[in-house]
Design a binder for these strands. Structure first.
Lengths: 117, 117
DNA sequence: CATATAAATAACTTTATGGTTCTGTAACTG
DNA sequence: CAGTTACAGAACCATAAAGTTATTTATATG
């Protein structure tokens, strides 16, 4: 079994729109400082720092150092694990996407061949 | 954007090992009554009913009727939406899986062609 | 009709979440 | 060295989560 606690932390981290938006910005713009991250949100800086701590605990971000700044960096590995968990259920919804099911079958075969659980 | 509140509910529902185990059993065994579902867990029946309510609110299960039983049925559509959200991040982790990245590119093309967001 | 079974609901407890403001600290800057 | 910037941490609050036991409701069945 893929470590359950890790999946708990990952899915929990993803269950908040602010945190998903943070990940989206990191993916789109690369590393961002806390201040820059907080700017578009109607939320205090400590609130953002708390969200970052949740993301960090899930292994979804890491922190750098640039003088007094702590740039936030996307770490996508847990997203791969979460995707891997969800992919197992593809047979239950893939029908509506036509050939998607076959593709995902191939995908899973490749995952297995790459040593992924 | 795919409805944010729906993703909140789906990821939150998935962030608990008991609920993931319930989904796994439903996928493996088909519809199951609450009593049968509760049996393997070290947990009271009302606790399971609460988990089912969380899953139901996320649209991940529906309930049938068989005399005094309320069989639980897997509804996988929200899993597809969650997978769709995660797939967007494949570029950030797919490299390690070799040709997986190309496959997922094709997958996304098909999703778009099928009218999915 | 009385009882058993299946599940939901209520009431309660504990702990976690998500937000706030205020304060502290580390590093740059004039 | 004084002030500013960028952040973390503490203390607090309200609400939600996850569990419990006890009670209710609905349906079957002897």
């Amino acid at each position: 079994m893929i470590d359950a606690a890790r999946l708990d932390a990952t899915f929990h981290a993803l269950a908040d729109p602010t945190r998903r938006a943070i990940l989206a910005r990191l993916a789109a713009e690369g590393d961002i400082t806390v201040m820059d991250l907080a700017e578009p949100f109607a939320m205090s800086q400590p609130a953002i720092s708390k969200h970052l701590k949740v993301l960090e605990k899930a292994g979804l971000v890491s922190r750098g150092r640039d003088a007094q700044r702590r740039p936030v960096h996307l770490e996508a590995q847990p997203l791969a694990e979460a995707t891997g968990w969800l992919i197992e259920y593809r047979h239950y919804w893939a029908a509506q996407f036509g050939r998607l099911d076959d593709l995902l079958d191939e995908l899973q075969r490749l995952e297995a061949a790459s040593g992924k659980t």
